[in-house]
């Protein structure tokens, strides 16, 4: 299986890249690691007419701490994330994406811009309430919160001719975290994934909590009912178990070969409980 024909440029600057994308029109696509796009192109499920390769762009890689945020260049690979234990749930989740060869190519920017609800990092961005900076061809920049980034299945706020230029993820120091990914095989896409973040108050109760799902709707979604049930209350096994029962509320999981919608809802409840327990350190 091989891609259909396309034109290719590898501009040396961000401006050039944006211009090339704008000139290429709707069927021009940016190429980062290519591990979302190339598999689709090989199956001819995507047939862009122009690929704008971002590999020569400077300054879009790397991980820095800034004002309580992790500032991550969009071309930073999953492999770079997984080896930074200080990134917490981001590192832990990155390590679970596909397999190491894929992680050696795939990038955080590509994953977020692609917006596959079965990818793992979008749920992490949703749970951490991270945000991305998007540049358009006119040189304009805007910051988009996770909640607004993911709009529908494979549809994000990153429009044609636009690029993510920065990813910001709150460091959430002092929060407990866990990402529970349920797969049949290690290298598979998540059947369901749950990202849980928990902040304990000095008295041990739940000061704050965030839960987000992979593959439970057409976008990554927050489990607000679970969060509400837990926030401000005790953070023991019973409370967690009770809160996790709300996990399926507001979800609309797509059924597939391996899991019916009902089964996915059930998994969401089980995995939410497990993720919360791990995040709460209980």
């Amino acid at each position: 299986m091989i891609p259909a024909h396309f034109d290719y440029v590898a501009p040396a600057s961000l401006d050039e890249a944006l211009r090339a994308l704008a000139d290429g029109g709707e069927d021009a696509k940016p190429l980062a690691g290519g591990h979302s796009l190339l598999p689709l192109m090989k199956m001819r499920l995507a047939v862009p007419t122009l690929l704008v390769d971002l590999r020569r762009l400077e300054g879009l890689r790397g991980i820095e701490r800034e004002n309580g945020d992790w500032r991550i260049g969009p071309l930073t690979r999953h492999a770079d994330l997984q080896r930074r234990a200080d990134l917490g749930v981001v590192a832990q989740t990155a390590a679970l994406i596909a397999d190491q060869q894929v992680r050696n190519r795939g990038t955080i920017g590509g994953s977020l811009a692609h917006g596959d609800p079965a990818s793992d990092l979008p749920a992490v961005l949703a749970a951490t309430e991270g945000r991305v900076t998007i540049r358009d061809a006119g040189g304009g920049s805007r910051t988009v919160a996770a909640a607004d980034l993911f709009q529908d299945y494979l549809t994000t706020a990153v429009g044609p001719g636009e690029l993510i230029t920065e990813v910001r993820i709150p460091a959430l120091d002092g929060w407990g975290h866990a990402y529970e990914k349920f797969t049949r095989r290690a290298e598979d896409w998540a059947m369901v994934g749950v990202c849980a973040l928990v902040k304990r108050a000095p008295d041990g109760s739940c000061e704050d909590v965030r839960v987000a799902f992979t593959n439970m709707a057409s976008t990554p979604i927050r489990a607000t009912a679970v969060e509400q049930a837990l926030r401000g209350g005790p953070l023991d096994d019973a409370a967690i178990a009770a809160a996790a029962e709300h996990a399926d509320e507001g979800t609309d999981p797509p059924a597939d070969l391996n899991a019916s919608a009902d089964y996915k809802r059930h998994l969401a409840r089980v995995l939410t409980r497990r993720a919360l327990q791990r995040a709460a350190g209980s």
Partner: peptide
């Protein structure tokens, strides 16, 4: 290591 079937 990379999968050379998914690298142009």
């Amino acid at each position: 290591s990379v999968k050379s079937c998914t690298v142009l």
